[in-house]
């Protein structure tokens, strides 16, 4: 059918107040394509969590979304500190979020587990000191 469509966003790590905006834009464009509402929700929740993580834990990064018939892939890549123990990071409730963002409701340690829950596939590649790349796939 159609060629895949790619969206690219720079996620600004210095501007906490705009964290989450890329996922709002993706949501808008997915609606225009007519992707089913529940799929949009899964994509935007997963992307939102990943985007927030890049801002809070990795000083920002890049977000790429590729839309194909039946499949949406989200790639979030940062050059932050990396994750030493991925399994531990994936544990519900584990968080190293700083105090100042906890008052806003972040830091429950639920982001990564939710990203996994809402997507059909999630892969984390991380090198300490170099950065993290999270690739998520949502099928529909």
């Amino acid at each position: 059918m159609s060629e895949p469509i790619k969206f690219h966003f720079d996620v600004d790590g210095d501007n906490f107040s705009s964290a989450g905006e890329a996922s709002v834009q993706v949501k808008r464009m997915l609606r225009q394509i007519g992707i089913p509402a529940d799929v949009i929700r899964r994509v935007s929740v997963a992307m939102y969590e990943g985007e927030i993580n890049m801002v809070i834990h990795a000083d920002g990064g890049n977000a790429d979304v590729v839309v194909e018939p039946g499949k949406i892939v989200i790639i979030l890549a940062d050059r932050g500190p990396g994750i030493a123990d991925i399994e531990l990071a994936m544990t519900e409730g584990y968080s190293t979020a700083p105090e100042n963002v906890r008052s806003l409701g972040f830091g429950a340690g639920m982001g990564l587990p939710n990203m996994k829950r809402y997507t059909d596939d999630m892969k984390i590649e991380s090198v300490v000191g170099q950065g993290t790349t999270v690739t998520m796939t949502v099928l529909f």
Binding site: S2, E3, I33, G34
Partner: peptide
């Protein structure tokens, strides 16, 4: 009423989205 939708057919909508990009 999905007024924001580009086309009722998803394939067509994707083509349009690619053109928009």
């Amino acid at each position: 009423s999905p007024v924001m939708q580009l086309d009722a057919d998803m394939g067509e909508a994707m083509k349009k989205m690619a053109d928009i990009q």
